[in-house]
């Protein structure tokens, strides 16, 4: 099943909701574009969590182009999609693998974003590409977090380096990278404890883990992925900003996109922080991770709209 279908599947129920909203907007052949119309459009866009700024820009563009005209649905959709796609343009390759030696990937995020599950999914993905993965369970803070990753490691057959509860996570990361080098693994993924981006001490700890990883392999960590819960609203921007400040994030894994949440905050993040989305989590199984393709993301968001018969 391709990315497109998976997203569609996840968004099917989403689209019902989206659908009614937008169908209300275009009840007949077209509608006069006036304040009321734009307000409704704003409402629909806001509900994707893309944020007031991005939504406002789109509404403004629609307003300046089409105000006082009767608008067809396709016209409007084209404007919106083009705008979103141009915002989300990015490189296609998600992970820059190290030319030699293990590629180190550090995973960070707030509590409950889905870091550990995303790591399991990434592991499964890399294994399917024929790569050998070493995991570093550096979440030594949360109760049973290490056990959680260990269970995944056993299920997936990956090597794992564990830390004692409340031990220094940086030392776990160090040992994980050391093992990856020694065992000539292809990828080393380091899990970290969830932390709110405002907790300065914990953010410094994260910086330290980052630094320690870089001591063994100068270019490491090659990727720092921020796991973002798709239900997150505008706080996602703050998360992206602060985590990027602390550990130079290279991309986002957008988890839990299989619900009704649309994850539109990544649009605002892209706009304000410049961080691209690399992968999308669409389920609880290890294979429920797909590459993020902006055009398809945008299309899928409005998918049911275009296939709906024009009334």
């Amino acid at each position: 099943m391709g990315f497109f279908n998976k997203i569609k599947q996840g968004l099917k129920k989403t689209a019902q909701l989206l659908n009614t909203d937008v169908r209300d907007l275009f009840k007949s052949q077209g509608r006069l574009v006036d304040d009321g119309f734009l307000e409704e459009l704003l409402g629909v866009l806001i509900k994707t969590d893309m944020g007031v700024q991005a939504a406002g820009a789109i509404v403004e563009e629609t307003g300046s182009k089409y105000r006082a005209r009767v608008m067809q649905m396709d016209e409007l959709l084209c404007t919106v999609k083009t705008k979103l796609k141009s915002l989300l343009v990015q490189d296609e390759a998600p992970i820059r693998f190290a030319p030699e030696g293990p590629t180190v990937i550090m995973v960070a995020g707030v509590n409950g974003a889905g870091k550990t599950t995303s790591i399991a999914k990434l592991t499964s993905l890399f294994q399917s590409q024929g790569k050998r993965v070493v995991l570093g369970a550096a979440d030594t803070f949360r109760a049973a977090a290490v056990e959680q990753l260990t269970i995944w490691a056993n299920r997936l057959g990956a090597q794992i380096v564990r830390g004692e509860p409340n031990s220094d996570p940086a030392s776990v990361a160090h040992r994980a990278v050391a093992l990856a080098i020694e065992s000539k693994a292809d990828v080393c993924i380091v899990d970290t404890a969830g932390r709110l981006q405002t907790q300065q001490n914990l953010m410094q700890q994260l910086t330290k883990i980052h630094r320690v990883i870089g001591k063994q392999i100068p270019a490491a960590p090659h990727e720092v992925l921020l796991v973002l819960d798709a239900t997150t609203g505008q706080n996602g921007i703050s998360q992206a900003k602060h985590f990027t400040e602390a550990v130079h994030c290279t991309g986002i894994v957008l988890a839990k996109l299989d619900g009704t949440a649309k994850g539109g905050v990544v649009v605002a993040i892209r706009e304000q922080v410049g961080l691209p989305v690399k992968y999308v989590g669409v389920g609880e199984r290890p294979e429920d991770l797909t590459l993020f393709v902006p055009d398809e993301f945008v299309e899928a968001l409005f998918e049911d709209l275009t296939t709906a018969p024009a009334i």
Binding site: T231, G259, K262, G264
Partner: peptide, 12 residues
Amino acid sequence: VDGMTGQDAVNS
């Protein structure tokens, strides 16, 4: 409910 939830809070 996660206090950081966005517009989807209503749906869930």
